[in-house]
Amino acid sequence: MTAVVEETAPGTGHGSTAAERDHTPIVITLRIRRFNPETDAEPYWQDFKVEADPTERILTAMMKIKAEQDGSLTFRRSCAHGICGSDAMRINGRNRLACKTLVKDLDMAKPITVEAIKGLKLEKDLVVDMDPFMQAYKDVMPFLITSGNEPTRERLQSPEDRERFDDTTKCILCAACTTSCPVFWSDGQYFGPAAIVNAHRFIFDSRDEGAEERLEILNEKEGVWRCRTTFNCTEACPRGIEVTKAIQEVKRALIFRRV
């Protein structure tokens, strides 16, 4: 939480805020790891100085660089407020979404490092090959599996049953968790946290009947048992999903064969 200057709106019983914050632009340095497969043998670091409002998103600063300084700077982006999952990057050594990281939350006096997420093939600048990540997701059968006749109306589900898998429905497939995992870095075959999160979302859904099948998949050599409980994934998740906890719940379900 950020401190805000409060003012009281007359006529209301509550304290209100004008969100009056310091918008004085400052010059920051973004140290970006560049790589153009058509011209560069190796990635290299390049510094860009850019004027930024401290409350601005890192993504905004990057877009400013692209628009005003170097159009070849390449990164994915879409919604710009943390729900589409396009712009996961390693910023000051930590996986985050560039659109959810504000300049003021970093040390503005020092160069801010921006590089591609690790463990997936680097394609260009901040762009990596997402296909292996998406394949791991598909491999855990991330869809509702049911049998028998469908009811006419909706399937019933109590609010308590719905709550059991609420946390893992928030996943936006940004890959921040999976590419922060040391096991995934050293072994690209590992399903990785995001795939397990999405398996969890169905294993613990009271309407689903595919838990056994999914648990078998995750019981394999490259499944949940590779997790070393480093908690990097939980720290990296921009949606605040308790990823490590979800993985633990899957492990427990495998041990006790009960969801």
Binding site: R76, S78, C79, H81, C84, G85, S86, I172, L173
Partner: peptide
């Protein structure tokens, strides 16, 4: 990618 679409917003 399909899940990046703005329906998600």
């Amino acid at each position: 990618y399909p899940t990046r679409s703005h329906t998600g917003a």
